[in-house]
Amino acid sequence: MTATTTRSFHMDAPIRRITFREALDSEFAKIRSVRSTYWTLLICVVLSVGISLLIAAVTSANWDTLSATNRATVDMSSVVAGVYFGVLVVGVLGVLVVSTEYGTGMMRTSLTAFPRRSVLFLAKAVVLTLVVLVTGIIIAFASYGVASPFYTKHGVDLSLSHGANVRALLAVPVYLALVALMGLALGFLLRHTAAAISTLVGLFFVVPIITNFLPGTLGKDLNKIVPSNAGSAMMVTHAATPGSTPTLSPIGGFVALLIWTALLIVPAFWFFRHRDA
C-alpha cells in the first residue's frame, strides 16, 4: 500500500521497439477476454448450422413437390444456406470489436499503449479475420456434415472430390470474414454500436429490398451486387437456370464483396488515422 514500494518495482529489461507482433498479441488478448466474442461466435455457429439443417430437412421432405428447375438449383449453396443469417452475427462481432472500445473509452487507453494507429488498425483487422475464418471453416464443415445427407439421398452430387464443391465450402469462411471486416469498418466510422449494427443490417437486409423495387435492368444489376447477394453467389456451383434471379458468378461475387469491404475499410482506416481519438 505504501507508495515507497515502487522502489522494488523497477524494470531492468532494455526497451524494445513495439512492432506489429505486439499489436497482434494485444488484440488477440482483447478479443478472447470478453464474453461477447464467445456469445457471437457460438450464436453464429448454431444459427448457421441449425438453419442449414432446417432448410435441408424441409427441402428433403418436400422433394417430390419440387419442380425440375428448383431441383437443379440445389447444390452446395443449399447445404450452407444458413450462412445467409450467420453473416449478420459476425458482422455484429466486427462492430463490437471496435464500437465497445469507443463506447467505454478503452480506445484512448489502447492508443496510449500502442500509438501507431495504422499498425493497430491492421492488427485488429487481422485478429478478427483469423477468428472469423476459423469459425467459418467450422460452420462450413459442420453444415456439410449435418445437411448434405438430406440432399445426397436425392442424388445431388455434393462430393468433395469436385473442386467446385470444395470451393463453395471454402467460400463460407471468406464470406464471413469479409462481412466481419465490414462490421469492423462501420465500427471505426460510426463509433456507436447501435448505429453501426443498424447500418450493417440496412446494407444486408434493406438495400436488397430497395434494389428489388427499382425498375428495369438497373434494379436487377444492382440487386446482383448488393453484399448479401454477392456473398451468396460465392457459394453457388450450379449453372444459371432460365427464369431464375440473375446472380454474379462465384468469382464475381467475391470481387463485388471485396469492393464493398474496401469501400468501407479504406475510409475507416483514413479516419482512424486522422481523427482525434
Partner: peptide, 9 residues
C-alpha cells in the same frame, strides 16, 4: 448489440 441483433433476427 445483443438485443438489436435478436430483434432484427
Amino acid at each position: 448489440a445483443g438485443a438489436i441483433t435478436g430483434i432484427v433476427a
